[in-house]
Design a binder for these strands. Structure first.
Lengths: 215, 215
DNA sequence: TCCAGTCAAAAACAAATGTTTGTATAAGCT
DNA sequence: AGCTTATACAAACATTTGTTTTTGACTGGA
């Protein structure tokens, strides 16, 4: 019994939107297709006009959002000319995606374990690519003296963790606007990488005896 | 039919240990009691000699580990005399607990959403207490000039995120020993809070125009 | 030796869950 | 108008899952 005004494409989009939101809230294993169907406004079985399994639903969400993230990095971050500007842009992008924009992004970090081996590999590959962009920025910044980092890999992890952590507490309807939040975190990251400041009077950040002298 | 050599206390410990490990790996919703029973080496129904529900299992794990964490903070971190030393100790403790020691700690950050409202409140209360210790350290450090932080609350979140993120990638059987890891992250945190360095020649960290002049 | 209490197996149940199938109506093209 | 395809409903199925109940053997003390 086809419903009046039903359009496949619209239903599909609704399904993925509702699924992302639901999974972000309760986790992949924590949701059931009946609840999803209810949110979409459709019967359970009808979901299978658009997906072949619950697992595929998760995979498609993750695959879509990771590619979106990577495209966004290429379009905005890599367009900047200096490591510092690129890093700032990266922070901005990552935070934007982890707050307002997409509930799907949240899933991308927390629901990897629910992917079947084959799918897991694919998504992790995208994740690695994404994080590699950050690492390259850090590496170049060290080379040209913009940053002072002892262990780039660890610094990368620290930054990712710091930024991703935002989505566990940030409330879009709170008093802290995203651009303010972004500015604070940009500053945190600048400190973390021992960035040169634009203030000509200030000495470069020197941290304890370990810090490597530059130039 | 009681099994030979069966001791209640031992079985109970086995159950909680196995449950923590399983949940840490697959998530609360992702595990089933039959798998747990198998890991323990017991029949499903027998679990109910020790728990009254699956939910109680999760709650007891979280409650136990959060109290353990808080006790550890009191016993080690708060014993230090300066904000800097306290912060270093906090980082060390947090990382220790999030790597080797307890799979239960991992759960404490990722499985809160699976708690029923009443239990959720209780655990969050403990979590808030734990994080308040960190915030107080930061606040005192700002007061006495050890740290330079514009927004203590955000800095707290950034640190927690950074440290907690460790448990998603750290491999205890890898080549990076925990104490090395700890040292790196201590340095990261010191940078983050704009800590004064022990090197008398170095100027305090000044970060862009926003940084607040101290003294 | 006997007893009370401890501990776990075995079986069963109801509810929940992912998925399949058959059917019927709407949409859109010829 | 008629035909094909797209879309969704309704019902059902086989499993899985948390939980309960019953039974009986083991343990330690009197």
């Amino acid at each position: 019994m086809r419903t009046v005004g039903s359009i496949g494409e619209v239903t599909e989009q609704k399904i993925y939107a509702a699924a992302a939101e639901l999974i972000a809230k309760r986790g992949y294993e924590g949701i059931n297709l009946r609840q999803l169907a209810k949110d979409v406004g459709v019967q359970v079985g009808s979901l299978y006009n658009y997906i072949s399994s619950k697992q595929e639903l998760l995979f498609n969400i993750l695959n879509g959002v990771m590619n979106e993230l990577i495209d966004a990095v290429k379009a905005t971050v890599l367009m900047e000319y200096t490591p510092t500007a690129q890093l700032q842009a990266f922070v901005k992008l990552h935070i934007q995606y982890h707050t307002n924009k997409l509930p799907a992004v949240v899933i991308a970090t927390s629901e990897l374990r629910s992917l079947e081996p084959e799918n897991y590999k694919k998504i992790v590959r995208l994740r690695v690519e994404y994080e590699t962009y950050l690492r390259e920025i850090l590496r170049k910044g060290c080379e040209d003296g913009s940053f002072t980092i002892e262990n780039v890999r660890l610094c990368e992890y620290a930054i990712i963790g710091m930024l991703t952590g935002v989505c566990v507490w940030y409330n879009p309807r709170g008093t802290l606007p995203i651009n303010k939040l972004t500015n604070y975190y940009q500053e945190f990251v600048m400190r973390l990488v021992g960035a040169e400041t634009r203030d000509a009077n200030a000495r470069p950040t020197v941290v304890r005896a370990k810090a490597v002298a530059r130039r």
